[in-house]
Design a protein around this nucleic acid. Structure first.
Length: 271
DNA sequence: TAGCTTGTTAGTTA
DNA sequence: ATAACTAACAAGCT
């Protein structure tokens, strides 16, 4: 589920656990997960310490005391877990950063869509990958420009990381719901009011999600996300409801751009 | 069980 | 050349 709020939560977790400890070893179960060859990765990082972090969209960058930059992308199912005893090694922790302190950071990737590697620099990486400013940093002007220059359904345009960075399939549905915009509105036909609502809703949804450490079950009841079907604990399941918060109709779902899309046919009408 | 899945990108088409 | 769209990627879950 790693959209922007998860990655921000991982970033804070990493900062709280992994800084300033010499790296003793790196264990890689499957080298396909690396974007840097294994020898270079270990030769560069062993003996160094992590000193600070930066997040842009769904990308986490970690700086070391030796001037290197490590990049992590969490794909669809990535996670981090810091632990001590090797008996506690989490399931699917396919890359381990083993610190001299005896603690370990597990990079968890059940479906192997995740990636780790060294990058030359954050700005160069973002430019090469055509990643737009972070969804919490982008200006209304730049967002407006990036939306209007495209001619497609607004949902896939917002999912495109070159429009704005950090929005994934669940957040985009929530943003469009809060902004009261149908996911199949054409991006180049949105007026200033509508784009303004997308801009505000993006910040509101992301800030709320980060506050709750991306724990969707705890989101406010007027969020559309409670209509989604997902794997939750029985506690969270009790908060799930298919009725739109507007209380007029049930939410519906369809495919937009090949992705499952939830929306309220009453609140989000095609114009 | 066969079909679904949160992200990204190579490949195809226009 | 560029933009839009689709399918594929890997593996786990139901």
């Amino acid at each position: 589920m790693p959209e922007l709020p998860e990655v921000e939560t991982y970033r804070r977790y990493f900062e709280a656990t992994c800084l300033h400890q010499p790296i003793e070893a790196i264990d890689v179960e499957d080298r396909k997960l690396l974007t840097t060859d294994y020898a270079t990765l270990t030769e560069t990082l062993i003996g160094q310490t992590f000193v600070s972090t930066k997040r842009v969209g769904k990308n986490l960058f970690i700086y070391t005391n030796g001037g290197s930059t490590l990049h992590m992308h969490f794909g669809m199912t990535g996670d981090l877990e810091y632990y001590h005893s090797s008996l506690d090694r989490p399931r699917h922790a396919r890359i381990l950063f083993i610190f001299k302190s005896g603690f370990n950071l597990g990079f968890i990737c059940p479906r192997k869509f995740e990636r780790i590697g060294l990058v030359e620099g954050v700005d160069a990486y973002l430019k090469k990958k055509k990643i737009a400013p972070d969804a919490l940093d982008i200006s209304l002007e730049e967002l407006t420009y990036n939306i209007r220059k495209r001619k497609s359904f607004i949902k896939p345009v917002l999912l495109d990381q070159s429009t704005v960075a950090g929005i994934g399939n669940w957040i985009v549905d929530e943003v469009l719901f809060q902004a009261k915009i149908h996911p199949e509105m054409l991006s180049n036909q949105l007026n200033d009011s509508e784009i303004g609502r997308i801009f505000s809703a993006t910040r509101y949804v992301l800030e709320t999600a980060i506050e709750h450490e991306a724990n969707y079950g705890r989101f406010p009841q007027h969020f559309l996300i409670h209509s989604r079907e997902w794997d939750v604990s029985p506690y969270e399941d009790a908060g799930r409801h298919k009725r739109c918060p507007c209380d007029k109709v049930e939410t519906e779902h369809m495919q937009v751009g090949g992705r499952t899309t939830y929306y309220c046919p009453e609140c989000q009408v095609l114009r």
